[in-house]
Design a protein around this nucleic acid. Structure first.
Lengths: 356, 356
DNA sequence: ATGAGGTTGGCAATCGTTTACCAAACGATC
DNA sequence: GATCGTTTGGTAAACGATTGCCAACCTCAT
């Protein structure tokens, strides 16, 4: 249990700690026989470097911090995974924090990471304005890369997809399938992705039908908001295509549509309701994609597991993560240069939910 | 950019570093006016403690490491989230690692965490035998808690659900719904959860029908294995209830059933196939739950978003996480005592997929 | 005025590495 | 064999906090 230190190895090997350090880090040539002796002593004692002490002396922890708004969101999970891999590949550790969808918690986590002396920070900011202050503060001390979302007024590198381009693809695709009465179920534009997707919809939906830009409903990026909106849409039936600002919303909408006219998840006893329009709950049953199309954004893994499978805009998470790590690590060596804003083009993935 | 240290604060306040340290940590009484002065100096300079230095001196990092086999699995994500919250509540940080479903990567991560001097380790071991060595080694140095899974031959605390109890509930429920010809789609018993769930099935499925224990297919805990098994089952139709060892498998099975008789996710053009049994692909269409029931295990969030919604055994992740953290933290103070093996009772959540 | 006892601030050692600087040793050269 | 340059190992000073010990001071009773 008594931690073995470099002193112990040095004594065991019959050399000084300086020499042991040199053997271990390879920072200078050491005579082969000495290397041998040190290595054996290390082996014998089961010595492992204390990264804390090393980091303190070197002024670098080989650790980067990451803050996401909500780990449970599968898109962020995928992003974290991609980042984790990239990072470990280059010998860095990841200190992960959940911002719990709160600017206060987020700010606190950033402080915590700074005081742990992480070498760099990867952040998916929760809020376009309210996250700016702590990001700016962090950026004064260490390299920061904003990922997926960008706040206004913090001069850092950033990596995100081209949301407008993704949204345009969705709209064009729906139009080509003959859907005309589009609607947008999005999130309040309190962060850049929500804002950009909304803006893109507003700018381009008019090309398909003039009144499309009027059918916009905003909540947040959650399935429960999607369910709410979906229930409303099923009741009023004012659209033939629902464009959702992310997959979670889309899953909620689909869930609401499935629920509708098929009341009570539990009361389903044996026979299925007759096909087509029925009235079990006084509303027309909405069939996807025949009556209405639904699209998502992100392309999380579950998009292919629900029925109908979900048409979505794929965010290339591996690439996003790798790019963000690359940007961060390159800042670690060269501090110079103005912020690089990297945008990656996403692709539309067409599946059942829009295949009229 | 020049990091401000305690020396700077001391100079600014006109006191020694010792005094500043005492004010900041509260480790000893300091005269109120001095406290005031130090606080102001700290504020003025924007000083933040260097946790590295502090940790080195105190021999404690206030950080725990966690290794999971695969972050992308939603169950582990939920667990990580629960752990993260619990941990932060008590002022600890989380160093997260993905074992990438490989004992070698896992071992390497554990080493990395040890050399970073984490105060404790939370691990969901990937493999019942091949993960044992590194866990044992870690346990010699710091408190270790095994979570969800347990390896043989490592004397550490552990927190997991009672898998057998969960499985028994599934079997009883299916029997009560009139399903008789059960089958088990599980994972090779290379880890304790896979083994326990399999064993529980083998021990209890016979109560419902003598030949049930013959219908067992083993792969891994993935949707793709579920899809494979589901396709096979749809083709041969030998069961009226499929018990899956976790939700991912169940989602795969449901996916395969949905696909079946409805060939080609892309080729679906307009009209739906007629309802009930049809022959688009030469096989009878399997309806869930009318023709066959499907159950999962874990109760991940998506279990309620697919149709039919999935009957599953709920693992109380918040409780598991909190319990694991509690166990770990209590070991940090008292090293004594023999390993505590905590088992939590899971509940069956009945949904559409088994409601005949 | 003096001494006991309690506060409170400072000095300096310490945690475990890394590394600038020094010096011994060795080889080569003339 | 003296000189010079090159290896290569050791000494000790960092890195930035915490904390045991000491001494100065203050209070109060005698």
């Amino acid at each position: 249990m008594a931690r073995v230190t470099m002193r112990d190895v040095a004594k065991e090997a019959g050399y000084s700690v300086a020499t042991v350090s040199r053997v271990l880090t390879g920072s200078r040539r050491v005579r082969p026989d000495v290397v041998q002796a040190v290595r054996e002593a290390q082996e014998r004692l089961g010595y492992r470097t204390n990264q804390l002490a090393s980091a303190l002396r070197r002024q670098s922890t080989a650790t980067v911090g990451m803050v996401v708004p909500q780990i449970a969101n599968p898109f962020f999970t995928a992003l974290v995974q991609a980042v984790e891999r990239s990072l470990h590949r280059s010998g860095h550790g990841l200190l992960l924090c959940d911002g719990e969808e709160s600017p206060e918690v987020e700010a606190e986590r950033v402080q915590m990471l700074l005081s742990r002396q992480v070498d760099g920070l990867l952040i998916v900011p929760y809020h376009a304005e309210r996250s700016a202050a702590s990001i700016r503060e962090a950026a004064e001390e260490i390299p920061v890369v904003q990922l997926d979302r960008v706040v206004s007024g913090a001069e850092t590198d950033s990596v995100a997809v081209d949301n407008e381009h993704g949204m345009v693809q969705v709209i064009r695709h729906l139009a080509s399938q003959g859907y005309r009465r589009l609607g947008f179920v999005g999130a309040e534009p309190t962060n850049s992705t929500a804002a950009e997707r909304l803006q893109a919809y507003l700018s381009h939906a008019g090309e398909v039908g003039a009144d499309n830009t009027e059918r916009v409903w905003l909540g947040d990026f959650s399935t429960s908001w999607g369910q709410q909106a979906g229930a409303m849409l099923a009741a009023t039936g004012q659209v033939d295509a629902v464009i959702c600002a992310n997959d979670l919303i889309a899953l909620g909408v689909l869930d609401a549509f499935a629920e509708h006219g098929n009341h009570g998840t539990r009361a389903r006893t044996g026979k299925r309701p007759a096909h087509g329009r029925n009235r079990t709950s006084g509303q027309p049953r909405l069939r996807v994609p025949e009556d209405v199309a639904v699209t998502g954004f992100d392309d999380i893994a579950f998009a292919t597991l629900i029925r109908p499978t979900l048409t979505s805009v794929r965010q290339p998470v591996d690439e996003l993560g790798a790019e963000a790590v690359r940007a961060l690590l390159s800042r670690l060596s060269r501090t110079d240069g103005r912020p690089r804003k990297i945008r990656i083009q996403p692709d539309l993935v067409v599946r059942q939910s829009t295949a009229r």
